[in-house]
Computed example of a mutant assay.
Amino acid sequence: MAEEEVRMFVVFLCFGFLATISSSPILISNVKPVSPVVVEEQLLWLSGGGEGEVDIYRTPLLVSTPQGSLLALCGARKYSSGDAGPKFLAIRRSTDKGQTWSPTDFVADDRSPDGINAGSIFVDETTSTIFVMYIQCAHHYKCNVSTLFLINSTDDGLTWSHPRNISEQIGTMTFDPGPGYGVQKKLDPYKGRLIVCGHGDLLHGGVYCLLSDDHGNRWRYGGTRKAIPYDQKKKAGDFAPDENQPLELPDGSILLNARNEYTYHCHCRVIMRSFDGAESFPLDYLRFDEKLIEPRAMASQWYSNGVLFFSNPAHKTKRINLTLRWSYDNGTTWASSLTIWPQASGYSAMTMLSEDSGHLYILYEKGVKSSVESLSLAKVALYGGL
């Protein structure tokens, strides 16, 4: 093991002993307490329904648009529930706060034996452009080179551009976006920057972020936190942060919440923070949140009006018990929680309409025997009542 890896490994061992020790929470004054309750729920996609070639709908993406619409996307797996194999990107659109939805459309078709992975959706508020970044050939089962694509819509998600090859700018190392949403910084430093974070393959694991300072035209790598050991086969207990979700806090920092793929230290989430616009994620601000137990799955986080929200299947080993938690001190402590669905549940994505700060939307994998049976949209009233 190289000297730098040894030094980092010692640091991570220290984190293993000290992860539960944190500084006093920084309380945000004048925050209105929330009392979330699910007021509406509807199935957006049902797997096994024989809709065209699609067998399974998985990996939810959800975003609100500058025009006030909701866009829901997912990976429509054509012939099996496995990660590998051909897929579509499926989309539905709502212009009435989630009451009704357009029929399913397909905005991308990989036409490949080792298909696309639904990645990250994000909005450039300056140009009112909606982007989706996704990877093709993420698993290298029947192809050798990964390609990163970007599509965009300038008409509120009605039509989409042809895929643009971003690998021509960043190279062909496996970068699997999200899954979830990317962010555009609203505050300094680097106000207006687009940030999309993701992960590498299982051999070259870890967290990686792509940055664009020209509204999505050019992209480059920013902050990384590589797996240990790197470029080696992993085993249980290795450090390998994986699928992740960034957001911007009121001080302009980027808070990143990541899947703990090989359960280093705990069956819980890895938390990182950047103060330079995702250029770096210092070890000083890496910790493990033992309250956020996980069975290794995609999770989501959202921030609004002084409250940080987090959703995931809250169980150490099983994808069950989809739970919403909330914090008034940026995740230092968690005030309380709400069970969204106690049975089989997996990946989730959250968003909020800009003109309605009283409701949170959660699109999640839901089932009885298996979490891949459907994708369901829950509308949560944050201050109780209908």
Rank of each mutant, 00 (worst) to 15 (best):
K235F: 10
K235T: 11
A236R: 12
G237C: 06
G237S: 06
D238M: 11
F239K: 04
F239Q: 02
A240H: 14
E243D: 14
N244F: 06
Q245V: 15
Q245N: 00
P246W: 06
P246L: 14
L247W: 12
L249K: 06
P250A: 05
P250D: 07
D251I: 08
G252P: 00
G252K: 14
S253M: 02
S253V: 06
S253C: 07
I254N: 04
L255M: 12
L255N: 05
L256K: 01
A258V: 05
A258K: 04
R259D: 10
R259Q: 10
N260D: 01
Y264D: 01
Y264I: 04
C266G: 11
H267V: 04
H267E: 13
C268K: 00
V270H: 01
I271Y: 03
R273L: 04
R273W: 04
D276L: 12
G277E: 13
G277D: 07
A278E: 08
S280M: 07
S280D: 11
P282M: 14
L283E: 11
D284A: 14
Y285I: 06
L286M: 15
R287F: 04
R287D: 08
R287P: 02
R287M: 11
F288G: 10
D289S: 06
A297L: 00
A297V: 09
M298C: 08
M298P: 01
A299E: 04
A299I: 08
A299C: 14
S300M: 02
Q301G: 00
W302N: 07
N305S: 15
G306L: 05
V307S: 03
V307T: 15
V307P: 00
V307L: 08
L308F: 01
F309S: 07
F309K: 03
F310C: 04
F310W: 05
S311N: 15
N312L: 10
N312G: 12
A314G: 02
A314C: 05
H315D: 15
H315I: 06
K316P: 10
T317H: 07
K318Y: 05
R319G: 08
I320E: 10
I320T: 14
L322K: 12
L322E: 14
L324G: 11
L324M: 13
N330S: 07
G331R: 05
T332D: 05
T332Q: 09
T332N: 08
W334S: 06
S336A: 14
S336K: 15
T339L: 13
P342C: 10
P342A: 08
P342R: 13
P342H: 02
Q343G: 01
A344E: 03
Y347M: 11
S348C: 15
S348Y: 03
A349I: 02
T351C: 15
D356K: 11
D356N: 14
G358V: 05
Y361P: 02
Y361A: 12
Y361V: 06
I362L: 15
I362V: 15
L363G: 03
Y364D: 06
E365G: 02
K366R: 15
K366Q: 13
V368R: 12
S371N: 07
S371T: 01
S371V: 00
S371I: 01
S374P: 08
L375S: 07
